[in-house]
Design a protein around this nucleic acid. Structure first.
Lengths: 221, 221, 221, 221
DNA sequence: AATGAATGAGTGTTCATTCAT
DNA sequence: CATGAATGAACACTCATTCAT
C-alpha cells in the first residue's frame, strides 16, 4: 500500500527532523555556556539524550555542528536588515530617530528573546581563528554570510545618510562603530549579568541610554 | 677578580630576564593568536625556541603564564585612569572635550603601541568562563584588578559630570557604554585588520569618528 | 525476535565482563610485579591488549583500578574471619589447635590459590604512604576495610582466649604478632620463590612449621 | 710548601667526606620517608642543602645513591650475626633463652636506635623488583650481601640446634620464620606507629610478647 | 538508524640527568 | 668543585571520531 508506506516515511522524516532539532538545541546550550573548545561531544549527546554516534549521523564533525548554529542567526540578522532596507527604499522613515531605534531593536530584541543569538555575533568577532579551523565549505558559508550582513548594514546607513536622515558621516566607519557598540555593550552586559543577576535590569536602561546618545550624535535634526 | 665575577653574574641575570621575556613574547603571540585553550605549551616552547620544561622553570602552570600576560596590561590601564583622575582632582580639565580625548587616547595608544594589550581586554570580557578556570589565586588577582579598573573608570566619569564637564548621565551606564564601545570597535577593527591588512589605515579614522560622535553626545557645551 | 535480541545482549554483557576481567588480570600482573608507581597505564593496556582509553572506560583513575584489586581481597579476608568468629560463637571449637589451624588456613589457602592476594596484604602494610596518595574516597574504603579486618581478627582471638582455647595473652599484641608473622613469612617465601622456583616446595613445610610453633606457643593445653 | 699543600688537601678531603655524609643523610631521610620512586633528586638536594649536580658528582645515579644506603645496613646486620655466631662457637650461651634474646635484640635495638635500618630490611624483601633495576654491579653487591646475611642467620640457628640450645627444627624453615616474624611485626608496628603515635609504646610490649612466645616454642628446656 | 565500546593523537606537568660556566 | 639552567622522555588522563552490531 502506497499510502501506508508514505505515512511511515513521513513519520520517519518527522522524527529525524526532531532529532536534529534536539541536537541543535543541546549543542547551542552547551557551546554557548562553555565555549567551543571546552564543549565535548559527550556533553552534547548527554544534553540531547542521545548517543554520541547519532550526532555524527547528522553532523560530520564538531566544527560542522558548531557552524550549523551560527548560520541561522547570521541569516536572521540579515533578514532584519533587509526589512529595514526595504522600509528605507519605500521611504517609510521620516526621521533618523526611528531608523536608529529600529536598528537598536534588532539587537535589543535578539538579546532579550534569544541572548544566545548575540553570543553568536561575539563568537563571530572573537573567533575568526576558530572559524579558520572549520572546513573550507562551512567556513566560506559563514564568512560570506557575515560579510554580506556587514555590507548590508553599511548600505542601510549609507541610504539613510543619502536620504538626509543621518548626518553625513563615512558609512564604513559608522557601520563599524555601531557594530562595535552593539557587540561591546552586550559583552559588557553579559559579563555583569552572569555575575550579578540582578544587574540584568540595568541592561535595558543602558541600551536605552546608548540609543539616546547615538541619536544625539548621528541623527540629523 | 671581583669585577669579572660580577660581570658574569650580570650577564647571567640579563640572559635570564631575556629568556623570561622571550617566553612571554612567545606566549603572547600564541595565546592571542590561538586562544587559551587551543594553545599548547609545546607550541609556546617551540615559538620561544626552548624546551617545554624550561617554561615550567619560570612559570608554575599554564594558568600562571597566561595571567602573567594579562595583569601588566590591566595594571597599565589602571595607571592611565589614575593619571586622568588626578588631573580631574587637580582641576586640570577645562573642557569635557579634552577629557574624552584623553580617555580615547588610552585605548588608541595601547592599540597602536601594543595591539595585544587590547586583545587582553577582549579576553577579559569574552572569557569569564575561562577566567573561572584559572586557579583561585591568579584568578582573584585578575578579577580584582579588572573590577578595580572598571570602578575607577566609572569614578572618573562621575567626577567629570560633577565638575560640569560632561552631561548629567548615569555614570554606571555611561561607563559600560564607553567600555563596550572601545572593546567592540577594536574587535571589529581587529577582525578586519587581520583579513585585509590595508584596512588598518581605517582604524585611526574610525576611532577618530567614534571620538567625535561621543564628544557630540556626552560633552556639556 | 525477542530471543535473538536477548542472546545478543547477553553475549555483550559477557564480553564486557570478560574485558573488565582481562583489565583486572593485566593490572594485577603489572601492579604486583612492578609496584604501583612504576606501573603505567600504558603497560597495563599493553598487557591487556587493549587501548589505554578503554581502561578509563571502566576505571575512572589509576587509583580506582588499583583499589579494585585490593578491596575484594580484603573483603574475602573479612569473610573468612567472620566464618571463624561464627564457629566460635557457636562453640564449634573444642581445641585451640583447630582454631589456629583454621586461621593459618585462611592464609595458606589464599597464598596457594591466589598468591597475589597476599601481595595485596603486603602492599597494604608496606605502602601506607601510597595509600595516602589514593583519592579520599577509595582510600577511605580500603582503610576502613583494613581496620575492620584487623579488629575482627583481634576479636576472634579475644573470644578464643575467653573460651579457654588459647592462653591468656593480650589480644591486641597477639593479633599484631600473628598478622606480622603471616605477612612476613609470605614475603620471605615470595622473595625466595621468585628467585629459585624450586624452593616453592619449602613453602608448605615452612608454613606448617610456623603453625606448629604457634600452636605450641599459644594454645592452652 | 709541602705542608701547606697537604693541609689543604686534607681539608678538601674532609670537606668532601662531609659532603658525602650530608648527601647520604639527606637521602636516607627522604628515601625512607617517601619511598624510592616518590623521592626526587631535587628533594634530596634541598634536604642536603646543596645543588643537584653536586649529588651527581659523588653518585652516578639515583640507583647508586639508593644502594649506597642499603649496603651499610646489611653489613651491620651481618656483623651482629657474626658476633652471635662467635659467641656460639665460644660456647658462651648456656641457654637458648639468651640466644633468642640476643637475636631479638638485634632487631629491637635497630628499630629503636635507627628505625630506618629496618625499613631497609623491608625494602630488601619488598623490592626485589627495584633491586633488579639497579646496575649489575651494585645490585650484585647488595644481593650477595643479603644472601650472606640470610645464610649466616641460618648457620647460627643450626649451630644453636646442634648445641642443644634450641629444639631440633629444620634450620632453613626456622630461619625463614624468624626473619618473617621480625620483618612482619615491625611492618605492622610501623604502620600503626605512623597513624597513632601514642601506640609506639605498644611496640616494645608486642616485641617482648613475640620473644616470649618464640622462646616457648623453640627453646629446648 | 542508533548505540556501546574502542582508540589515536594529544595535553599539561614532572623528573633524572647533563651542560656551560 | 659547585651550580643555575636546560631538556628528553615519560605519564595520567581526555576527546573527537570510528567500528561492530
Amino acid at each position: 500500500m502506497q499510502k501506508h508506506q508514505q505515512a511511515i516515511r513521513e513519520r520517519k522524516k518527522r522524527e529525524k527532523d526532531q532529532r536534529i532539532q534536539s541536537i541543535l538545541a543541546a549543542a547551542k546550550q552547551v557551546f554557548f555556556s562553555k565555549g567551543y573548545l571546552k564543549t565535548t561531544m559527550d556533553e552534547i549527546a548527554l544534553e540531547a539524550q542521545i548517543s554520541k554516534p547519532t550526532i555524527y549521523q547528522y553532523f560530520k564533525t564538531k566544527d560542522e555542528l558548531y557552524s550549523s548554529l551560527m548560520l541561522p542567526f547570521l541569516e536572521e540578522f540579515g533578514r532584519q536588515f533587509e526589512r529595514i532596507e526595504k522600509k528605507l527604499t519605500d521611504r517609510k522613515y521620516t526621521s533618523g530617530n526611528d531608523l536608529v531605534k529600529d536598528l537598536f531593536n534588532i539587537f535589543i530584541r535578539s538579546y532579550e528573546t534569544a541572548p544566545d543569538s548575540l553570543r553568536v555575533a561575539h563568537t563571530f568577532f572573537q573567533h575568526q581563528d576558530l572559524i579558520n579551523e572549520l572546513n573550507p565549505d562551512t567556513r566560506a558559508a559563514i564568512s560570506d554570510r557575515g560579510k554580506y550582513d556587514f555590507e548590508l548594514a553599511r548600505r542601510v546607513l549609507q541610504a539613510a545618510i543619502t536620504q538626509g536622515l543621518l548626518r553625513d558621516i563615512d558609512s564604513f566607519a559608522l557601520s563599524d562603530i555601531l557594530w562595535g557598540l552593539f557587540v561591546g555593550i552586550t559583552q559588557v552586559m553579559d559579563m555583569k549579568a552572569t555575575k550579578h543577576d540582578q544587574e540584568r535590569k540595568y541592561l535595558k536602561s543602558t541600551l536605552s541610554l546608548a540609543e539616546k546618545l547615538i541619536i544625539d550624535a548621528i541623527v540629523l535634526k
